[in-house]
Amino acid sequence: MTTILVTGGTGTLGRLVTERLRADGHEVRVLSRHAQPYAVDLRKGGAGLDAAVAGVHTIVHCASSPGGGDEEAAAHLIAAARRAGVRHLVYISIVGIDRVPFGYYRSKLAVEGLIEESGLGWTVLRATQFHDLLVRVFAILSKSPVMLLPARVKDQPVEVAEVADRLAQLALAAPAGRVADMGGPEVRTLDSLARAYLKATGRKRAVVNVPLWGKAYRGFRSGGHLTPERAVGKGTFEEYVGRIGGRGR
């Protein structure tokens, strides 16, 4: 039986990864800022982190914060993993972080670099955006009578449970470096995704596409965050919003 540590193990992705690994009979430790007995703020590191990684064979690093601190967190995690003799570090990243000049993406790319240079056995999986992220964004945007969307931008949302399955598989395999990207089954305009959300939640809103500016917007508009050649996901956005219905409001 392998001992595996899942960072961000109470989050949307980490919780599912933990469930799958435990179902396979593995000992899984959940690390997050508030989950005992391994309540650790990765941005600060410390003795609690060393205790969490002691005796661990594999780490699945799902913890992330768009608000900043990912690089510091990864540096602390890598240092603790090296001290503990961890054999394998698996990291979930995002498709297009090397093509779209967006602040959060730059941080994710920097973390990939730290992992590659860590001296640990490592695996990195890049995935497209999860369905639930789009739902959270649309819920905010639809609070107004007019739903404003960035013009000419597409997305390729993927089912988080499918990404969790893939991460669990990778965690139980040998270090593989950068593996093939994982994208959702369809490349869709934000307009069509927003209308599917509104229909599923019973909201009536005018949808208006607004041209924006800046390098990040141009990167998204050009599809740098998409991977149509790796549309391996099965679950569609309509299926997801159909399941959550009014809970997506």
Rank of each mutant, 00 (worst) to 15 (best):
L42E: 15
D50K: 05
V56G: 03
T123K: 04
V124P: 11
F138I: 07
G121D: 03
L148I: 10
F138R: 06
S222N: 13
R22I: 00
A47R: 11
G11L: 13
A47T: 05
F220M: 10
R178W: 07
G235P: 04
L13C: 01
L13D: 05
T128G: 10
E117R: 14
F130S: 05
K204R: 15
L89E: 11
A168C: 12
G235M: 12
Y104F: 15
H88Q: 00
K215L: 15
R249W: 15
V232K: 08
G103D: 15
G219E: 12
A194P: 02
E117M: 01
S93V: 00
G69M: 06
A168R: 10
G113L: 09
R178M: 10
A151N: 07
I115L: 14
S107H: 07
T3L: 06
F237D: 06
A75R: 15
A194L: 07
G223Y: 09
V187G: 09
Y38F: 15
P228F: 13
C62W: 00
T128L: 02
D50E: 15
V187K: 10
T123V: 12
T236W: 13
R178S: 11
D98A: 03
T58N: 07
L198T: 01
G246Y: 13
A161N: 04
R152F: 12
G233E: 09
C62A: 13
R203L: 15
Q169S: 14
E71W: 03
A164M: 02
A39D: 00
Q129A: 11
P66A: 05
F138N: 02
D41T: 04
R33V: 00
W122Y: 15
A194Y: 04
R178T: 13
I115Q: 01
Y38D: 14
R205C: 08
V146G: 06
L5W: 05
S64R: 09
R243P: 08
K234G: 12
G48T: 07
R106Y: 13
L133S: 08
A79E: 14
R22E: 14
T236D: 07
V60E: 08
W213V: 14
M182I: 03
H76R: 11
A161L: 00
R20E: 13
A52S: 08
D191C: 03
C62G: 11
E229V: 08
T58F: 05
L77F: 04
W122R: 00
E116M: 00
S144Q: 14
H76E: 14
R247G: 04
I140N: 10
V187R: 02
A75Q: 13
R126V: 06
V160L: 06
G233A: 14
E186F: 10
Y104G: 03
G245W: 04
V137G: 00
D191A: 13
A63D: 01
R20M: 11
Y105S: 01
V56Y: 02
V160H: 12
P228I: 12
Q169F: 07
V208T: 12
R152N: 14
L16G: 04
H34C: 07
A200E: 02
P150F: 07
V158R: 08
V95H: 04
V158P: 01
H76C: 01
Y197L: 12
V163P: 01
A80C: 09
R82M: 01
H76G: 05
S32P: 11
K108Y: 12
D41A: 01
Y217C: 10
L167E: 09
I59N: 08
